[in-house]
Structures are given as C-alpha cells and as structure tokens.
Design a protein around this nucleic acid. Sequence first.
DNA 1: GTACTTGCAAACAGTTTGCATAGGC
DNA 2: GCCTATGCAAACTGTTTGCAAGTAC
Lengths: 143, 143
Amino acid sequence: MKNPDSVLAKLRTKGYKLTPQRVAVVKYLMNNKEHPTADLIYRKLRKKYPMVSFSTVYNTLEILQEIDEIKELTISQKSAHFDPKTEPHHHFFCETCGKVRDVLQNVDIPSQWIENHRLSSYQIYFYGICSECLKMKKKEVLK
Amino acid sequence: MKNPDSVLAKLRTKGYKLTPQRVAVVKYLMNNKEHPTADLIYRKLRKKYPMVSFSTVYNTLEILQEIDEIKELTISQKSAHFDPKTEPHHHFFCETCGKVRDVLQNVDIPSQWIENHRLSSYQIYFYGICSECLKMKKKEVLK
DNA sequence: GTACTTGCAAACAGTTTGCATAGGC
DNA sequence: GCCTATGCAAACTGTTTGCAAGTAC
C-alpha cells in the first residue's frame, strides 16, 4: 500500500506546488489497481472536481513518472495505462474485457545487462482471456 | 530465415490478391531486423515504388498479422513496430538511439496459463542503452 | 509578489475510414 | 467482368503545446 500523503510530500520536496488538481490526481491514482488511462483519470476526476483539465492530468502524470511514483504501461498501442505500483511485477491484458491486471507470479529476469545492452527497466505483458471472463463464458455455456 | 515467396503463397491461398504494393511490403518486411513502424515502411517503399499509399501499408500490415506472419510490438507508446520474426523472442528498446533490437536470450515463461488467466501470447520489452550506443559513449570519453 | 500552474483551444502524430477509381485473377 | 484493392483526403483518437489568466507559497 502506498500512502498518497508520502507522494504529495515528495512532490513538495521536489519543488512542485500542491495544487488541488494535482492532489486529486494523486489521491485518485494511489492504490488504484485499474491501471487507468489518462482519459479515464480525467473523466473520473471530472465527476468529483469539475475544475480539472486534460493538460493538467497529462502534466501531473508526467511529473509522477519523473519522480518514480508511477509507471507508464505500453501494453496497448492505443493509449497508455498508468500504474502506481512501482515494485517489479507484470501485467495481463484481457482481450475480452480490455482490463489490465497485475501478475505477481515471479519470472526470472536478468537485472542489469542483457546481451551487452545496459538495462534500465523492463516490462512483461501477457495477453489472453482473464479468469473473470473465462468464468462468464462457462456460465453462458451452461445456460 | 523466412522466404517472402512462402508468405506471398500463403496470401494467395487465403484469397488475397497479390498486388505489386502488397508484394513490395512483404519483400521489404521479411528478414528485416529493424522492426520498422508503418511510417518507416511507407517512406522506404516510396523511394523505390512511388505508387504505395499509407492505407495500403496499413491494410497489408493488418492482413499479415491476421495470417500470423508478423507481430505488432507495443514497445513504444508512440507508434507500433512490426516484426516478421514470429518465433518466441524478446525485444530491447534503446533509449538513446531509439532502435528496437531482438533479444534471443531465453527467459522461462509460463506457456498456457498464468494466475488463472488463459494465455494467448506475451511480450517482454527491455529498456536501456544498447551495446552500440555504449561503445560510442566510451569513445567519446576517451577523446 | 512572483514564478509556477492551470484551462482552453489549437496543433500534432499515428491510425482508420469512406468512396470513387483501378486492376488482379 | 467481377470483386477486391488502391489512393486520396478527410475523420478520428490520444497526446502535446502556446499562451493568457489564476493561484500556491
């Protein structure tokens, strides 16, 4: 679990101002397991706080990446998904429901070098049908 | 090594017409190790065959994915890269030169299921500085 | 008070689409 | 000759940018 307040404190330490918009984005994102897109973040925040714009959402996402509090997932070519969980783990993209899910199962990955290239990070993306959608399908067959 | 002719034959078998444009895209792509974007394919082909349009490039890429002769890589959010090598392997994105390189080193990955989700495919993307760029940097330091 | 941040709208890049015309088989 | 494929331009989507006005500190 990540405390939104510690992220806000980090922002202030790094010289970023704590505007209500930024606070809203941080509070919405932290501990969010949905891996939302910028568009989803914008639409969700709009409901609660009508004074949030697209540029501010993008601006805040940019900053949160810079200070290493979120990661951008390129699991779908269409739009970027954002993940507040920064510890190493993987992701599963369900081709039926479109949801992005965490995969915690361990995969052994070289940590610093691979084939003479210096690594700074890596991502593992799995694609298929998620357990939830498989359950639904089973039910439909039984009908 | 993949023979462009076998891909062309497959296209014909599946009922797709072998237009000069499609042939050009297939010949350009097969055995290409650059993981080009649609835009790059378009610009390269233009030089040789001025009668190629964007829509045709995209159309052909779509078809080649359908018949499993190329894979789309979402290694960069900006634009899709395409890979004619369909056997399992991984990719490295150099943050300095922007090139996408093959990584053949083996990584053990579950093949059919992960955490109760049914797998259809997966991708491993590494990010960092490639061996070529590291060499260049070393030379610069020695100057 | 001042520099940073915001909201807006316009710009931009990559991709997709609709449709009249061309051409593979 | 038929039916699919092409080229063009326009539409569309996600993201970025420029700038005047607002606001955290």
